[in-house]
Amino acid sequence: MKDAQTLSLSQVPSGTRVRIESLTSDQNICNRLRELGFCEEAEIRCLTSGESNIVCEVCNTRIVLNTEVADKILVTPIKQELIPLLELPLFTKAKVNKLLKIDPSLKARLMEMGITKGTEVEIIRFAPLGDPIEITLRGYRLSLRKSEAEAILVSL
């Protein structure tokens, strides 16, 4: 079962939270990685995955790895994890999973604008002063305040 899901860190789509299964580089690099927090069983999050390097969030710090190193880190994605929409990194697609208990008219409005379970959403940008945010869904752009977006939980 483990093997079916195991992939290398470089194959992980950005925004995914993963658990480290094993490190397969040579000993020196492995130790260095462990010191940085890439231990076996540690949970990390891949923030952006690009052509040549990958940004991960490890123990609340951001670390850049090049793909050669990332290739040798085997991970399994942590499935069905609900995260608040606001914690989604920019330009990361996720599916709406749940709307928290909020003011009914607000909830109805959010849903009528298309934020229903299973809808793919993605944060495009934050307003210059940090609030509101702009998201894309169903092929159009919507802006909401953070206080409203807080009610939206998504899964990757």
Partner: peptide, 12 residues
């Protein structure tokens, strides 16, 4: 008012 709702479309 009630909690104010700010949900606004950003049209192309």
């Amino acid at each position: 008012g009630n909690r104010q709702i700010f949900i606004m479309e950003l049209p192309p």
